[in-house]
Each structure stands twice: as structure tokens, then as C-alpha cells.
């Protein structure tokens, strides 16, 4: 037979990739859903401590990061419009903007975590254990959930950079942009999770 590899039919189905991407997004939603269950149970069990501990976080930094992520969501959504209109330059520029905003988010996060850690507030620290159970759990969840979220940002950075390269090489173009679209979906998911993390950790004091 003329086959050269295990699978010969090059079968392109953008709709299938999109359903697959959505299903993946659902798994991510449930992954964080599990953490939101833990958060809500412990908040219910330790209401006062959670409110006081949330007061320790800097609302300004949290708000700045929220706005950064929202803008980055818009830039990547716009990059799809640009792609559909066949504007390669603008697509790359918008993806670059998304990349830059994602980095800005991480830098903010780095300084935020850094200052908390230098104050002795990190999982398993003695200072935290002195504060009591509610604070221990709040900061445990804070580091775990924002950490897992930051990990998703880092993965997003890599994927967006990869898509930029693909757009640059015209392997993703105005009639074949499922990859860009799915990356966009992933990036919006990261934004969605943050939309809930932000009020739960920074605002409800």
C-alpha cells in the first residue's frame, strides 16, 4: 500500500477541533470548580478569618491584574477578527499585545507573592499557623488557586507565542485559523477563572 504513516487521510474538521477545545475547557472549569467547592466550604466554616485575611491582599494590585487580563482577552479576540479580515500584521501585533499583557500580569503576581512571602505569609509558615486555622486555609487556597491559575497563564504564553510563529509562517491564515480560535478560547477561559478568583480573594473582605 502507498501509506507512509499510520494515518493517511488528512482529515480537516475545524468544528471538531472546536468541540474538542470546548470539552477541554469544561475539564478546566471543573478542575477549578473543585477548588471553588473547597473555598466555599472553608469560607462557610471560617467566615470571620476569611474576611480578615482577604483584607491583607492588595485590592489595587488585584484590580490592576483584572483589567490587564480583560484587555488581553479583548486583544486576542480582536486578533481573530483581524485574521478573518486577512490582516496578518495586525493579527501578530494584537497577539504580541496579548503576550505583553500576560507577562505584565505575571510580573505583578511575582511582586505580590514576593511581598506576601517576605511577610512570612506562605503555606506552612509559622506566622500563618499562629494566625489560626481560617488564615492558614485562606492563604493555602490563595497560593494554590492563584498558583494554578498562573501556571495556566504560563502555558497560555507558550501557546500564544507558538500561534504567533504559525501566523508569521502563514501556517495559520484567513481560511484556516482554528488554532488561533482555540487558543483564544483557552485564553478567555484563563480570564473567566480570574473573574471569579478576583472577588473571592481580594474583594469580599
Amino acid at each position: 500500500m502507498e501509506q507512509t504513516s499510520g494515518n493517511t487521510h488528512i482529515h480537516r474538521d475545524d468544528e471538531a477541533s472546536k468541540i474538542g477545545m470546548w470539552l477541554f475547557i469544561f475539564t478546566e472549569m471543573l478542575l477549578f470548580g473543585g477548588l471553588f467547592i473547597v473555598y466555599s466550604i472553608y469560607r462557610y466554616l471560617h467566615p470571620v478569618a476569611f474576611e480578615l485575611a482577604a483584607g491583607e491582599l492588595d485590592v489595587a494590585v488585584g484590580t490592576a491584574n483584572t483589567v490587564i487580563l480583560l484587555i488581553s482577552s479583548m486583544t486576542i479576540a480582536m486578533s481573530i477578527t483581524a485574521m478573518q479580515k486577512g490582516n496578518k500584521k495586525l493579527t501578530i501585533a494584537l497577539l504580541g499585545a496579548t503576550l505583553f499583557l500576560a507577562l505584565a500580569f505575571l510580573v505583578n503576581k511575582y511582586f505580590e507573592w514576593g511581598s506576601k512571602i517576605s511577610h512570612g505569609l506562605y503555606p506552612g509558615s509559622d506566622r500563618l499557623h499562629e494566625f489560626g486555622h481560617g488564615d492558614t486555609l485562606f492563604f493555602g487556597l490563595y497560593y494554590f488557586m492563584t498558583g494554578l491559575h498562573a501556571l495556566h497563564i504560563i502555558i497560555g504564553l507558550v501557546v500564544i507565542a507558538f500561534v504567533m510563529y504559525r501566523v508569521h509562517r502563514e501556517m495559520v491564515h484567513s481560511t484556516k485559523f482554528a488554532l488561533l480560535e482555540n487558543t483564544g478560547l483557552y485564553w478567555h477561559l484563563v480570564d473567566l477563572i480570574w473573574i471569579f478568583l478576583f472577588p473571592l480573594f481580594y474583594l469580599v473582605t
Binding site: R12, D13, D14, E15, M74, A77, I80, T81, K85, K176
Partner: peptide, 17 residues
Amino acid sequence: NNGKHHIVPYKTHITVL
């Protein structure tokens, strides 16, 4: 269905943001 998509105008994105 490949490549048949609704194009969302830039203006909508800005309004949403």
C-alpha cells in the same frame, strides 16, 4: 463548516471591554 465564520467587528470588542 470550515472557514465559515461570523466576523465580530472591532467596535463590538471595545464596547464589551
